[in-house]
Nucleic acid binder design. Structure first.
Lengths: 218, 218
DNA sequence: AGGTAAAGTTACAAATAAGTTACAAAAAAA
DNA sequence: TTTTTTTGTAACTTATTTGTAACTTTACCT
């Protein structure tokens, strides 16, 4: 399990590397925002990020806001900044936890484990005869692998990730087409839903008219 | 939403009562473990517990371990005890968070909100024989799914979201028709209410003449 | 009680959202 | 390059949804 530490203090890096690897985590550390950004390009799966705010090439909080948050990776802030407003802002933005330096390594590990325990989610979701493997990004229909185009797959994944919840067309447009950068109109979503449905032997996608789409378990 | 504070310091009790009630939580405070135990007999629903460790009649950590943990209520420790082993032990036992005194009220509130957000289960509101599932956007009448048109559903949702509160026609017009962009007259709302009522076996919607509509629980 | 304004009711034509199909441009793979 | 796949749009179809008008009933006021 990979943990990414974004921190420029070598003593902390070494200390955490030692302590976390003893607990069987794999710690990857980057000392600058630039390096972290480059690392994200590699698409290595990260279970948790430990993030400093004061970094050599920028503010970690902003980095969290504009990049990490969208990737949906749980993040613990670990920083010397103890200002109440920063703590509150970080937590409200979505940080899983906030620790101030100096910190107890054992406490950090306990908090890391809590976060990981919490965020542990199933990577294979099964609905009726359709199986979605999030790790492999493969969809099975009665055991048979079904071939989807990139966008089809992303939309289906979004629906699976929101099992039992309506996903509005608006959210689909936002989440899927923010990545491509393309500006696309509403009907496109409809067409994609048709394509996805056409590839599945069972229609597991409910339409809630005027609102969105939903996949229910069972 | 009820929050139970188990704490013997009056200054903290008063401060938190003020701060949390401002955020629309209802704070119930007990100063001893004995009183807390008695309170649990009453079976009042508690969303979160804030727990001190050093209490006049015992150790909060033990109380958590033998009583609270079994009740499965998320608990934040708020205590002067900063000993690493106690913090780690509390977190490992199952505490949702651990804050040491002195603490920032705003930070505590942010952490309280995080915990509550996390533990929020399903958003289903039930009134008499009608159930509204906000996640699925489904309405059940005696267990049977009722079919609503988009606007009907949105209006009914608005009323459910304002349970026990009057929603004025004006607000309905604003909130519902701001989305469609259409400019619609007053009577339309009346017609929609008729349509919604017509689909439900029980009329749970009260009309307050000249003011608006309201759904009451019970 | 009766007048009055608000809300309820009904029916209908217009508007619309989602489903569908087909196609050309763009991107990726060969 | 050529070939194949993917993508976005446009045009069409459908059943549903929507808004209004005209009329009736209800609740509240003096």
């Amino acid at each position: 399990m990979n943990i990414l530490l974004i921190e420029d203090n070598l003593t902390i890096i070494k200390g955490l590397k030692y302590a976390l690897e003893k607990e069987n985590y794999h710690l990857i550390s980057k000392m600058t925002i630039k390096n972290a950004r480059e690392f994200f390009q590699e698409n290595i799966k990260i279970a948790l990020i430990i993030l400093d705010i004061t970094l050599p090439d920028g503010n970690g909080l902003y980095f969290y806001e504009d990049t990490i948050k969208k990737m949906n990776i749980p993040t613990i802030f670990l920083t010397a900044v103890a200002k109440e407003e920063i703590v509150v802002k970080s937590l409200n933005l979505g940080a899983e936890d906030y620790l101030t330096k100096p910190f107890s390594t054992k406490e950090l590990i306990a908090r890391v484990q809590k976060v990981l325990l919490r965020s542990k989610k199933k990577s294979i979701i099964e609905v009726q005869n359709i199986k979605f493997d999030m790790d492999k990004m493969l969809v099975y229909d009665n055991g048979q692998i079904i071939d989807f185009s990139p966008l089809e797959l992303k939309i289906l994944q979004l629906l699976f990730l929101n099992l039992n919840k309506v996903v509005s067309r608006h959210v689909i447009l936002d989440k899927i087409w923010e990545i491509t950068g393309n500006d696309v109109d509403d009907h496109t979503v409809t067409v994609y839903l048709k394509r996805i449905r056409g590839k599945l032997s069972t229609d597991i996608i409910e339409t809630i008219k005027g609102i969105g789409y939903r996949i229910d378990e069972k």
